[in-house]
């Protein structure tokens, strides 16, 4: 780990921003009657943060249904994201996507995705673009332990290996696919074991330790940029809440287990790792957290004050060029 002071503080700032976005944004979204399907990534901040700290604006990521953290770590503006969650016209997707489809092509963010595993080949394709056009960019496919059992992951890992594409497969193993434990659903002890089958390095790291994730991703990104092909990183992490806001996780996991992982909160582990070195003070970190909290206040205000989309916008962007009349021909629309 060769991070300067500023970069170290930035890791904390990203994690704090994600945490406060989840803690504030999700209940606020619910209070506005929007979205049944919002998935909190609180607890998993170190993964998105540690991986994306190795990426530039030009690099690509494909994300999951639990993707707010990936968006923030890749540089998407939390204020715009909040607007998207609230269904406002100022969201990056103009209110057409919501939590599970947030994208920002200007940041190489190829979308959170509502189908488990579906974004994986998109990242592979972005890596192919980089290789064919010699752009020197890398792509990261984020997915969970649930998606690690999807055929499309295995096909994609094989394809990326055969074509030596600059892609990193990053598994966030948070222990549960909805309520199904990964130890039940996985045939191998670790998701990373599966890398062997596709002739790529596979590593399991502590996904609560942002520095461990950062180091593993740095190696994988270097390998990809050097043209040596894909890697698989499994980050062992934990979601502090249920699958969505609607399930009670204590129906399928124990309080003791939750307490164990809460004690390994990535923001807490960061403090424990950094403060004893004396270079960074608790006051600085407190200030970063306070700033993140204030940013969410601002984001909620921005989103609330943003206009809703016009109903007729529902016809826009189905295609690049398409007569609106043909989209509603013969279906007796009101707008």
């Amino acid at each position: 780990m060769e991070l300067d002071r500023e970069s170290i503080l930035k890791l904390f700032k990203t994690m704090a921003t994600i945490r406060h976005f989840e803690e504030r944004g999700i209940p606020e979204t619910g209070q506005r009657g929007m979205s049944a399907s919002v998935h909190s990534s609180a607890g998993q901040e170190a993964v998105a943060t540690g991986v994306c700290a190795n990426l530039t604006n030009e690099d690509y990521i494909g994300s999951t249904h639990r993707g707010h953290g990936h968006c923030i770590a890749k540089g998407v503006d939390p204020k715009l994201m909040m607007a998207e969650l609230f269904g406002r016209a100022t969201g990056p997707n103009k209110g057409k996507g919501g939590s599970m489809h947030i994208s920002d092509m200007s940041k190489g963010m190829l979308g959170t995705n509502g189908v488990v595993g579906a974004s994986i080949p998109l990242a592979v394709g972005a890596a192919l673009t980089s290789k064919v056009k010699k752009l020197g960019r890398v792509a990261v496919a984020f997915f969970g332990d649930g998606a690690s059992n999807q055929g499309v992951l295995h096909e994609s890992m094989n394809l990326a290996s055969v074509w030596k594409l600059p892609v990193i497969f990053c598994c966030e193993n948070n222990g549960y696919a909805m309520s199904t434990p990964s130890e039940y659903a996985l045939s191998t002890a670790h998701v990373a074991d599966r890398a062997q089958g596709y002739d790529m390095p596979g590593i399991t790291v502590d996904g609560m330790d942002v520095f461990a994730v950062y180091d593993a991703a740095a190696q994988a990104v270097a390998r990809a940029r050097a043209g040596d092909g894909p890697s698989l990183i499994e980050c062992q992490t934990y979601r502090f809440y249920g699958h969505t806001v609607f399930d009670n996780p204590l129906t399928y996991r124990s309080k003791e287990e939750e307490d164990h992982w809460r004690a390994r909160d990535p923001l807490k582990l960061f403090r424990e790792a950094v403060l004893p070195q004396g270079d960074i003070t608790a006051a600085e970190l407190d200030q970063i957290e306070a700033d993140a909290e204030a940013l969410m206040e601002e984001a909620v205000k921005f989103a609330d004050e943003s206009p809703l989309p016009e109903p007729v916008e529902l016809y826009d962007d189905v295609y690049v060029n398409y007569p609106r009349e043909l989209l509603k021909r013969g279906v007796n629309m009101a707008v």
Binding site: P121, L122, G125, A126, L128, T129, S130, G151, E155, L159
Partner: peptide, 14 residues
């Protein structure tokens, strides 16, 4: 699934 998906990803990135 992988190569149709990759073609879609490639098409969305240039």
């Amino acid at each position: 699934a992988a190569f149709i998906g990759a073609a879609i990803g490639a098409s969305s990135t240039g």
